[in-house]
Design a binder for these strands. Sequence first.
DNA 1: CATGAATGAGTATTCATTCAT
DNA 2: CATGAATGAATACTCATTCAT
Lengths: 190, 190, 190, 190
Amino acid sequence: MTKEERREQLLDTAGQLLLKEGWDALTMEAIAQSAGASKTLGYAYFANLDDLIWSLYDRELGLLFGRVEAGLANADTFEDRIRAAVAAYFDTVAENGAMLVRLQAGIVARRLNRDRPQRTVNFLEALAAIIREEFGLSRRRAIAYAIVMAGIADSHGRAWAAETLGRAELEESCVRFMLAGVRDAVAAQT
Amino acid sequence: MTKEERREQLLDTAGQLLLKEGWDALTMEAIAQSAGASKTLGYAYFANLDDLIWSLYDRELGLLFGRVEAGLANADTFEDRIRAAVAAYFDTVAENGAMLVRLQAGIVARRLNRDRPQRTVNFLEALAAIIREEFGLSRRRAIAYAIVMAGIADSHGRAWAAETLGRAELEESCVRFMLAGVRDAVAAQT
Amino acid sequence: MTKEERREQLLDTAGQLLLKEGWDALTMEAIAQSAGASKTLGYAYFANLDDLIWSLYDRELGLLFGRVEAGLANADTFEDRIRAAVAAYFDTVAENGAMLVRLQAGIVARRLNRDRPQRTVNFLEALAAIIREEFGLSRRRAIAYAIVMAGIADSHGRAWAAETLGRAELEESCVRFMLAGVRDAVAAQT
Amino acid sequence: MTKEERREQLLDTAGQLLLKEGWDALTMEAIAQSAGASKTLGYAYFANLDDLIWSLYDRELGLLFGRVEAGLANADTFEDRIRAAVAAYFDTVAENGAMLVRLQAGIVARRLNRDRPQRTVNFLEALAAIIREEFGLSRRRAIAYAIVMAGIADSHGRAWAAETLGRAELEESCVRFMLAGVRDAVAAQT
DNA sequence: CATGAATGAGTATTCATTCAT
DNA sequence: CATGAATGAATACTCATTCAT
């Protein structure tokens, strides 16, 4: 197995483990052995456990944000952009939702050894830029709305996980909440 | 110190500790000593560390939901109810927000030893009932919207913590996102 | 409840606990609470846990040896004495066997904070005296045989607990092993 | 040090410790440090303290029963078998007696987490088979006598430890008690 | 005669991490 | 590229015991 393959395999295994056994089971030894290697193998690929976890986090969030940003980029009107982004979001959640939720929660719960992950910041900036362009707002206001819209996507993901409604309905609802909400909030300011 | 006072004191201390030092610092010993007691005193009041943490969680969420439900109840029109609930939410977040976020994240990240906390479920049911009454929806759909509206409150709290906008603006925005969103989502269904 | 009654009740409770839950459950707190009192009551009646356990041991062995010695005393021929003692032994084992075994084992396993219990020594001396009188042996030899005969009783008790044979047969066997054994062993010396 | 050597060394150390310091000193930490290792090394070789203790027990009883069974097997007449077994028993007791007694007592006193050790059962079955062959008894009766004869050996070991008589005399006495006893007990049944 | 609050010493156990091979 | 032996720090939890009331 090549260096890069091993690394990916270890991250994959860590993700599986987190999903199946929970955060507590995410030990260096468990990951390595779950990957079929000796218990200390991980240290040849990651400086320490935190490094491994942050790497997983970066990879997974990179995937998610990458797709969503791609969705945002490949459409013309504001509404279409939002629709495309929401669709991309639901796609990723469908594949990896439960693990992402756990990962995110664990990251928040852990000490803040590291600055707020750049990934999230970058994504919010990108979304804010689009909002700003559409409504002509200040940067801070646009960021606030971006945070809120990301939260709306998130909670629709949760509503989906709770099996309240089907994907199609929730995707439509998500877009509606975002668009009607932001329009009304913006209107209230003027 | 009486039994009840001690118990409350230990929970207070645990909350402070979580806020200041993070989840990892939340050890039985640290809590007890931070409360000025011997390191094993906690075991006289809680069966184990998990029990203490769940007790803290219950207490804090009880407070939050209690206030928000009170807000929901003490108003006449749908919009007024939402406004009152949002105001109550912001009040609590102002006092305790960072700690609640950490607590919630830690609870999610920990093993699922316990069923989903009844508190949250109850609150969502209450909110769903109000939504249902207003729009005449099915129970599942109302619950989905309740989850989303709770998420909107949550993300406005985060936007506040990120110091993007002031409280007044965010409270207004929160109400707008909720009302315009739910109305539009409901409209889309018909 | 009078002082003496309480004391006896605590010893009774300790015995029950040892029987039902095993040696590890024999804590001062468990005993007191099992007796329906507050957890520290025991300290008003016994200097410490060791003292309580030794008191139980003394009481129980006193009962056993008392009965067996009474049996030894109330008969004329050597064989009748042995028979009477064995019958008394089986009587006590029938009532209290399992607890006595545990108690004895625990005492042996614990540190030897205390000299060999006088009770056992006294009993062995009494039995040795009778053997000596019957066969005209040296004191040391008589003690050796006394130890062995006590061991024979003990192992018959175990055979009974293992439900191999009924009491009548084992009692007879016990007497036979003792008498034939000691006679043959004595004969071999001459 | 190789895996197997370390394991044996830890068991050796545990045995020494039990003999010298008593059951209470038998902690994982004490064993490891007494073996010149860091305090948690034991966990790399045994699942937990119980596992280590049972392993010691198995090893020691395996040695004892192995020798005694070998003695039983390598002789022709019943008496010679018994003699050989008793000699083997005294040999082991000479080396390891005090420790075995403590170990056995501790095992009995501890909780019954584990089924009765197979080792003892197997040995008693082997002895019972020989008795049965000699006297033509039922299986249950033969087992009862096997238990008693094992008890006779045991009590002779105790008489030896009490320094009442010398080994030669006690070995002879042991054989006599067993043979005369079992013959007389069997005779009583017919 | 009895209680409840509190302490502190002790023990099992886990796990990240290092190092020699 | 990988292993296994070993370490040490950290933590949960138990329990005998004391003391004030």
